[in-house]
Amino acid sequence: MFFSPPNSRRALKHSRVIEIDAYAREDSLWDIEARIRDTKTSDTQLASGLRPAGMPIHDLGLRICINTQFDIVDAEAVSSAHPYPGYCNAITPDYTKLVGLNLLKQFRHEVKVRLGGTRGCTHLTELAQVLPTAALQAFAGEVLKTHEVGGGEVKNAINATVQDNQQQPFQLDRCHALKLDSGAVATYYPRWVKQASA
């Protein structure tokens, strides 16, 4: 079991599943597909009618196409299940507003500006927020080099033209485990370790 055993008996009532898949395309671009599904374990009365147990209340998707510099070159949103048919799904074409954004440059802020609140769908906009880290994970080891090679020299390439630059691996100093003064950095990336400040 992933979590410790619960302290009380309980019954599952609601399930939200978020899936993200990344695909390398033949044209050197990448598709990142994110999907969110909400289901209930019992029949649910919505304003638009009864939704039987197990049938999705939400089944929404967001696909972006990016280059290896994390620029969004295409975007598509879909909504196959939603509480207000004809209304919820009317906003999906607006997610083309993601085109032109870069996942690593103020992306989350720009998503809120363009598609936050009543300018978008709460669930699709929330789903968009996970795209930067999903793309980084997809690129790790494929587009971005994540380890030290060749006698301690780092090759951290975003594309083939910068493969020989000696740059700090992209994941360092982005979370608590990989702070530059951490034991993990000292162990796995000794070239980049910094002494903890007093």
Rank of each mutant, 00 (worst) to 15 (best):
E153I: 08
L12E: 14
T133K: 11
A53H: 10
L103E: 05
T187Y: 10
E110M: 14
G183R: 14
E33K: 15
Q166N: 14
A22N: 09
L127Q: 05
I32Q: 00
A138W: 01
R16T: 14
V143Q: 10
E142L: 10
K145T: 09
A196D: 00
N159R: 11
A177V: 11
G120Q: 01
D43C: 04
L29Y: 09
I32W: 01
Q69W: 01
S28N: 05
I66K: 04
P52I: 03
L50F: 08
A34E: 03
T187C: 12
T146W: 03
L144H: 14
I72K: 01
I36T: 08
A198R: 14
H14C: 08
E126L: 14
K145V: 10
D38R: 02
S80I: 04
T39G: 05
H109I: 07
P56V: 06
T68R: 15
W192E: 08
R174I: 13
N7L: 11
Y95L: 07
W30K: 12
P169Q: 07
G54S: 09
G141M: 12
R51C: 05
Q69R: 08
V193E: 00
V111E: 03
V113P: 00
F170Q: 09
T146L: 07
H58N: 08
T39Y: 00
Y84H: 07
T146K: 02
L180K: 06
V185R: 05
I18P: 04
P169L: 05
I72H: 00
V154Y: 12
T41D: 07
C121G: 04
T68Q: 15
T125Y: 13
L136K: 11
L104Q: 06
Q163F: 07
A186V: 07
E19S: 04
P56Y: 12
R108W: 01
Q106A: 13
T92K: 03
T187I: 05
T118S: 11
K179H: 07
R108N: 12
K179P: 03
Y87T: 07
K155A: 14
S15Q: 11
T118W: 11
D94L: 15
A157W: 03
G150K: 05
D181P: 06
G100L: 08
L50R: 08
V162H: 09
L180D: 03
I18A: 15
S8P: 10
H176F: 12
T41S: 08
T68N: 15
D164E: 12
E26A: 14
N67M: 02
L178E: 05
F139C: 13
I64V: 13
S197G: 15
Y188D: 00
A75F: 03
V149G: 14
V113L: 13
G54C: 11
H123A: 05
L124P: 04
D21V: 00
S79N: 10
A34N: 03
Y87P: 00
Q171P: 06
L104E: 01
A177Q: 08
S15P: 00
L50P: 00
Y84N: 08
A53Y: 10
A128V: 05
Q167K: 13
P5C: 09
E148C: 02
R108D: 04
I91C: 02
L180W: 08
P93Q: 09
H176E: 13
H109S: 07
G86F: 05
S4E: 14
K145A: 11
A184D: 11
D94F: 15
P93G: 06
I57K: 01
D181A: 02
L104D: 00
Q195T: 11
F170S: 09
T122E: 03
A160C: 02
G116R: 01
T96R: 12
V73W: 05
L103Y: 04
